[in-house]
Amino acid sequence: MVTFIEEFGAVWGGFLGTLSLTVMAGVLSLVGGTLLAVMRVSPVGPLRTFGTLYVEIVRNTPLTLMFFFWVFVAPSVGLLFPDLGFWPAVTALSIYTSAFVCEALRSGVNSVGIGQAEAARSIGLTFRQSLMQVVLPQAWRTAIPPLISVLIALTKNTSVAAGFAYVELVTVQRTLMTSNPTDGLWIFFGIALMYLVITIPLGVLAGQVEKKVAFAR
């Protein structure tokens, strides 16, 4: 308890590390995942194949392996980052999370009944109108709760960066626990609290959104 309060400066630094990683990787993977989802539902065969391959491979690769690639392997093929900790971590997390964002969005599109599109066309809406006014609004509603799940998972996944020279909450946990072995449990719960500060609001938001957009099909 005492250590956690005394060392709160370090904990706060770790918290900011986790938060900046989450935000940066979150934004990038939302963009990347949307592009991938567009590829996976597009009428163009090679794009679909690329999207499917990407998602299949990335979802079956451990995140640690991804980090390992960007930290140790990529520099030896000449891909160098401006720094050692932050950008490799952002790259690994964004590539990994994009696949999950893509799947959440795709499941949203798939959940829209084919009858909706047929009805839209039969009352004479153009392709653009049926997409913008009928299909995507429904797809979006279904996709938001799983998207927030993906962001919560991302928050937890940033902890892997602790093994690859980046200072975030788990790095601080390790340092504090090593230097104050007797106070370990308090440090653990303190750090846990810092994670919950990020994930609980997201969870509550998800619950609210789900309640608001729940609709009968």
């Binding site: 937890k156 996944n157 788990v170 390790r174 090593t178 072995p181 653990f188 919950l196």
Partner: peptide, 13 residues
Amino acid sequence: GLPVLMLMFLAKL
């Protein structure tokens, strides 16, 4: 709600 790595470090340290 917690990262797995946190739990592993709890056990280890």
